[in-house]
Nucleic acid binder design. Structure first.
Lengths: 214, 214
DNA sequence: TGTACATCAGTGAACGCGCGTTCACTGATGTAC
DNA sequence: TGTACATCAGTGAACGCGCGTTCACTGATGTAC
């Protein structure tokens, strides 16, 4: 009992590597052409360099691999938001810097973002629903964050959700554009500028809101 | 030569019907579960009740059927916009009524909108690109429309595009929500209310824009 | 330290199946004269 | 009006292929004692 509990250590390491390799192969193949729905189990194992039956050592079927990719992709996205929350200090350049960080991050993790974008409306119901649940969660988290800003302190939860929904839709639009142009540099500069303007336009409307009633 | 030019009339009628039936079967099957990428040619002909080879009498391959569905779906969308343009009289209730029309129309043509939403990020590159081209076109048309409003007369083309992009992203978000809830009635009322608020928030920001410079 | 046993990721053959595509055909309809 | 010919949507058999899944296996590693 005093001995280290590293049961099947090496065996588990190998297992973890293959498991991860299967996930990565799926993302890679989806980046090359397919939707998740169009991927085959054999295609994925071929990419990894293992025999098809090995797949079943790690996942019961394709859907369970897909759900794991959803979780993995949202972990990536949440890391971005965590950093954004810590570094975002309200001020002149806050929006600009947030958008820059966002675009750079999407480029750096394009396969995760592409997976989410593609499967949000995609062909596998369980995956689609999981993604939607997570997006809704994200939206209310953003709403909570927004509620801390002085101008928004008096807003109802519903209205805060409405604004955060608008912002998230704008951001999804940005993701689409980042994903559809493979080039970096100049393309991104323009994208960043547009996204910044869109967010600023939304924010300009905010102080006018209540005075107009609803 | 004086005779009516109805060459192969009945033959062509039959052909048109089957062609249309193939398109509709594809939409129906996509509504049931799959992404376009996951559909098979045989599945579609089975649904129509013809032999697989008949498919080739009408389309060279699946991709060409897909591209025809893109065209068909955008024809549907453009009809909505045409009506919207003719009936939209600026005023108190304009936004509300536009959003109501929009949601009702999306419900009535859910399979077309679902196809576009799904394949916009989908697995077939040619289809994805065709959809993006059309969306971009739509965006600049809306920008032109917006430019006719007094408040926006002095805006640059780039900024008008920025606003229309924001609005289109908000509308795509609405489409997603309409598609993901099969119920009508109360759900839609709430959706309509949120969409109306989002558009109104964007519009509230507009008069503030220039005074802030950029 | 040495040995017998348990675990389990990865193997490789085999299965039945639905797939896309080819081919020569059929038969209804339209056209020419 | 009648007949010979052209067109062409739909047929049905056949092909080779990649698919998901099963099964009994191997062999590396860890555990018990």
């Amino acid at each position: 009992m005093g001995r280290p509990q590293k049961t099947h250590r090496a065996s588990k390491d190998r297992s973890l590597n293959t498991r991860q390799a299967l996930r990565e192969a799926a993302l890679e193949l989806m980046d090359r052409d397919n939707s998740f729905d169009g991927l085959s189990l054999r295609e994925i194992t071929r990419e990894v360099g293992v025999v098809p039956t090995t797949f079943y050592r790690h996942f019961s079927d394709m859907e369970s691999l897909g759900l794991e990719l959803v979780a993995e992709s949202f972990r990536t996205l949440r890391e971005l938001l965590k950093v954004a929350r810590q570094t975002a200090v309200p001020g002149e350049k806050m929006i600009r810097r947030s958008v820059e960080t966002f675009v750079t991050y999407v480029r750096a993790h394009r396969r995760h973002f592409q997976f989410l974008a593609r499967e949000r409306f995609g062909g596998v119901a369980a995956i689609r629903e999981e993604i939607r649940t997570e997006v809704r969660l994200l939206q209310s988290e953003l709403a909570t964050d927004l509620g801390r800003f002085p101008v928004l302190k008096t807003w109802s939860t519903e209205d805060l959700n409405m604004v955060s929904g608008l912002m998230i839709n704008a951001m999804i639009g940005i993701v689409e554009q980042v994903l559809s142009s493979r080039r970096r540099g100049q393309d991104d500069d323009e994208l960043i500028m547009i996204a910044e303007k869109q967010l600023r336009l939304i924010i300009l409307g905010v102080p006018q809101w209540r005075s107009q009633g609803d």
